[in-house]
């Protein structure tokens, strides 16, 4: 160790300087057009930022962020969907070798390996070469994971029934239903109430409120059903009761 004259210390301390730090490149002596961070370069960054912000504000003004109906844990038929950036994980768990008995693979091993590999990437890819084309293994693995993430996300979004989940999540306006009326009595004594809910808000079956259902349609559907979900002959009773029921539903389903 260097001792005596010319010895340097770390800051104000008595620890001698070891000088192992790899100094950053000094770009002021670097060939090419370098420029000062402030104001020259920052101005360019901020211009990019300003354009970005304009686009972003246009998006927020034109597209309202979605809000579905208030959470209701009793509506078990709801098809859940995570936010888009988790879709690939969600899709992965649908495959037989990543679910059921093998779900440890889909839940722990694959994502865990990916996360650890990402964290320790600098030690997996240690060569001095920086160009992507000259380190084919690292680049290849990253491209492979990238493609699988894009593929899984895409698969997940095409296999999801968007129309149905929109229907299930819709905000249904509360309608005052006269529960003492003749029509409601028939509605609740028949099997209708089991699927369409006590307030016609929908349960396993779709909501009836806010749909403008004409009486004739109610009469037809109550007898014929809508395959595959709604069975035929759901209504059992006299024609007179059916008419009353149909009128009642027409009335409460008005928007």
């Amino acid at each position: 160790m260097h001792r005596g004259k010319g010895m340097t210390f770390v800051g104000d301390s008595r620890i001698p300087k070891r000088g192992k730090f790899i100094p950053p490149k000094d770009y002021s002596e670097y060939p090419g057009k370098t420029e000062a961070f402030l104001p020259n370069f920052l101005l360019k960054e901020w211009m990019v930022g300003a354009v970005f912000l304009i686009g972003f504000l246009v998006l927020t003004v034109s597209e309202a962020s979605p809000l579905e109906a208030e959470a209701d844990p009793t509506k078990a038929g709801y098809i859940p969907l995570p936010d888009w950036y988790f879709l690939f994980l969600y899709q992965l768990l649908k495959y037989p070798y990543a679910a059921g008995d093998y779900k440890v693979i889909g839940i722990v091993i694959l994502p865990g390996l990916a996360m650890i590999a990402l964290l320790i990437a600098p030690w997996l890819d240690r060569g001095p070469e920086r160009r992507a084309a000259r380190r084919p293994i690292a680049t290849g693995l990253m491209l492979l994971s990238l493609i699988s993430i894009i593929y899984l996300t895409w698969e997940s979004s095409v296999s999801h029934d968007w129309a149905k989940s929109e229907e299930q999540g819709k905000i249904v306006k509360k309608v005052d239903i006269d529960k003492s009326s003749e029509g409601y009595k028939i509605y609740s004594s028949q099997s209708c109430v089991n699927c369409h809910g006590e307030n016609l808000e929908g349960k396993v079956g779709p909501a009836l409120v806010g749909k403008n259902i004409p009486a004739q349609l109610v009469e037809k559907v109550a007898v014929n059903g809508i395959p595959p979900k709604m069975p035929p002959n759901a209504f059992k009773g006299s024609d007179k009761d059916l008419k009353t029921l149909a009128k009642f539903i027409e009335k409460v389903s008005k928007k």
Partner: peptide, 9 residues
């Protein structure tokens, strides 16, 4: 936001 998709997701 405590809406349907929030809860079930």
């Amino acid at each position: 936001p405590w809406d349907m998709k929030a809860l079930f997701a």
